[in-house]
Design a protein around this nucleic acid. Structure first.
Lengths: 212, 212
DNA sequence: TTGCATCCTGACCGTATGGTCAGCTTTCAG
DNA sequence: CTGAAAGCTGACCATACGGTCAGGATGCAA
């Protein structure tokens, strides 16, 4: 840790504290849900007094909103891989890799997102009706084109997307279950690789994807 | 409603009230999470005074535990279809149908289960380490045998199971997202049928399942 | 009819939580 | 150097929540 007693710039202070709070909040919200999370717990984890949280984020809702929006952006970002692809093999492989990497590196974020959606997306409804819908429609169109071009079987694009989302996020959201069934140990590098390869293989074979 | 002023038997009273409470609790826990749910809300939804809840279920935890255990049993029950099957086509088809039916008929239960696992299974850890593990090991063995008998490609059985769980439960847990992307409407009979068929087709094709 | 076990509930309690605020310290532009 | 703005925080408050309980109502066996 480069944390000497060196004086900090105002800007740095703000940035670092917000970052610490958001990180702590993500973890606590993921572990306890919105209702179960307490500002005190988040404060303790961030190493700050509770009142300091309210200095940066006026209310619990505002903090939660920030956490969820952060995740949503990471989530959408994984989509880029999808676009540049020449065909289903490239595109879907890259997307699965990206989403699995998110599940592995940001399991807390994934859980918060899942929780948000499960509770009816009280915070993100707007985003779902605009950004997410546009994103989805775009990918549906790409898949439809692939089908027309004979690059894959005529599978319903929406259900295919749901399958991709479900399968990849499962490794984050149900990570605890997977660990338990893995003898209480988290998946090794090798097991993660196997997971990715199995998913890719089953889905790509399942949709009859033709190398572009 | 067959609720006339007819006097009730003691037995009936107990059974009906417990049922009403469990139903209301399932819904509230699903919508708000354990932390966000309040006994008052559950009581209101069940049409009973809050104190009456505590007559039947001493604590919030005890009520929650009952709800979660109920779901776990329904969940395991869907496994039977899997066993009697002669091969992967029959077995996995039946399992997908059963789990999709659960997602459609018990979305709240599915959400509570998901929530429980996401939060580290504080209540169900024992079950996961015993019942769930045994169940899983059994199915893994069946799948392994199918592979040996050449009835399907050599896919990792565990990752295949995760894929089945993820894909089917997604329609309950992320039902709100799916509805939003469906123009705000819940899926029609036809759309549910299409969902099932797409899933079955992709997975069965993906694992190279041979009709037994 | 009687007595008892079960069922029911309004009123109450202690605690934990989200949020506030007055007043302190620190940074930094001028 | 100085003053104002930004950052910080212990102490405090109102509320909401889980849970309790005394005592009334109701079903039922004998």
């Amino acid at each position: 840790m480069a944390e000497t007693t060196r004086p900090m710039r105002r800007q740095d202070i703000r940035r670092e504290n917000e970052k610490a709070i958001l990180l702590a909040a993500e973890k606590v919200f993921a572990e306890a849900g919105f209702g179960g999370a307490t500002m005190q717990l988040i404060a303790d984890l961030a190493g700050l007094p509770k009142a300091n949280l309210h200095y940066y984020f006026a209310t619990k809702e505002e903090l939660y909103r920030s956490v969820v929006q952060n995740i949503f952006e990471i989530w959408l970002q994984a989509a880029n891989c999808f676009d540049a692809a020449r065909g289903p093999v490239d595109g879907i492989s890259a997307y699965i890799d990206a989403k699995m990497e998110i599940s592995r590196r940001h399991p807390d974020g994934s859980k918060v997102w899942a929780s948000e959606v499960m509770h009816g997306a009280p915070v993100l409804q707007d985003y779902m009706e605009s950004t997410l819908r546009e994103w989805t429609d775009g990918r549906v169109e790409i898949i439809r084109r692939w089908i027309e071009e004979g690059k894959m079987d005529p599978v319903d694009p929406r259900h295919l997307l749901y399958m991709l989302w479900a399968t990849t996020q499962h490794y984050a959201d149900f990570g605890h279950q997977i660990e338990t069934l893995n003898g209480g140990k988290s998946l090794s590098d090798r097991q993660w690789r196997e997971a990715k390869e199995n998913i890719k293989r089953v889905i790509l074979t399942g949709i009859g994807a033709q190398p572009a």
